[in-house]
């Protein structure tokens, strides 16, 4: 794995390097080399391979027998782009991404603001707020499923007992409840992520400007809108970016809660079904590549927008 060291003579291009720089290059590559090798093996090569596979009509046996040497075709792309299921899954994914990103960031922001001033129990509360984020997704998804069960779930029991619901609501099995429910779950699970970022950023904020605003007679609402939020913009931009990427490709949460039923089939779940359900590697790969392209376009547009707003 450390062969990278020898193949890169550090002084080759710029012969006037000092001895210590050359030694640094050698030691440096021995330090990053193994990591670069494994990242290449499990991430870079797979990404390139996905690209190749997306142009082949391949199933497991074909790939096992011929490796990359299967005939090339555009069928996967044509099939994917002309299927109504694909476009529907993209639409669902976009709704899901936009609402969970906005929801989790807004909730995390409000929570961080509400906990800005010290109070007794703040430390414990802050630690508790992170539970949904650190707990295994499988466990929390099944608790939600149990709580929302139409027959014996606590939410429906409360609804029918106290809120006058005629009967239990099938939160995860009926449109449009299912999509709303998975969005709420995702906000619940990821607001802590935004919360810790905002909490850290708020701690680093100088209070001078705020006190000046207070002296000038600004109301708390004006202070929030014109003093604090503008200073939080970099964090908001960063979080939006991170959450967008993560949610756009989210698989486990929806797979566990609904399995993609009742109008919740997001793109990642669809890729999984193609891969495992119909073991159509070519279609799954083409679908992944198109997803990556859509995401890249979305990110590009987002960055352009934020840059223009900053200018």
């Amino acid at each position: 794995m450390t062969t990278t060291v020898d193949t890169r003579p550090a002084g080759a291009r710029r012969p006037r390097r000092t001895e210590s720089e050359r030694r640094d290059a050698r030691a440096g590559w021995s330090m990053v080399g193994p990591l670069v090798a494994i990242v290449t093996m499990v991430i870079v090569i797979p990404i390139l391979w996905t690209f190749v596979l997306s142009f082949q009509d391949a199933r497991y046996s074909d790939v096992a027998r011929n490796g990359l040497a299967n005939p090339f075709t555009l069928d996967n792309y044509i099939d994917t782009l002309t299927s109504s299921g694909f476009w529907e899954s993209i639409w669902v994914t976009i709704i899901y991404t936009v609402f969970t990103t906005l929801g989790s960031i807004a909730l995390g922001y409000i929570a961080a603001l509400a906990m800005r001033d010290r109070f007794r129990g703040r430390g414990i509360m802050r630690a508790a707020f992170l539970l949904p984020y650190v707990a295994p997704v499988v466990a929390t998804a099944y608790v939600w499923k149990t709580m929302l069960n139409p027959q014996y779930g606590i939410i429906n029991a409360i609804g029918t007992e106290y809120l006058g619901w005629e009967q239990g609501i099938d939160f995860l099995g009926r449109e449009p409840y299912a999509l709303i429910t998975v969005i709420v779950y995702e906000i619940w699970r990821y607001f802590p992520f935004a919360f810790i970022f905002f909490a850290a950023a708020l701690t680093g904020l100088s209070r001078d400007v705020e006190e000046a605003a207070l002296v000038d007679g600004a109301t708390p609402w004006q202070k929030f809108l014109h003093v604090i939020t503008p200073q939080m913009m970099p964090v908001i931009v960063l979080l939006t970016l991170l959450r967008m990427v993560m949610t756009f490709n989210k698989f486990d949460d929806i797979y566990l809660l609904t399995g993609g039923a009742a109008g919740t089939e997001v793109a990642a779940v669809r890729v999984y079904d193609q891969l495992v359900g119909s073991s159509d590697i070519g279609a799954a790969s083409a679908n992944s590549v198109i997803l990556a392209i859509i995401l890249a376009i979305g990110l590009g547009a987002y960055m352009k927008l934020t840059k223009r707003m900053a200018a």
């Binding site: 991430i43 797979p46 996905t50 596979l53 993560m246 490709n249 590697i281 799954a284 590549v289 997803l291």
Partner: peptide, 20 residues
């Protein structure tokens, strides 16, 4: 760059490659 590439996209080839 690696950050930007999500699990589901590398899942297909990693799975196939490891099978082989």
């Amino acid at each position: 760059a690696v950050y930007m590439f999500p699990q589901i996209i590398i899942a297909v080839p990693v799975f196939v490659g490891f099978q082989i």
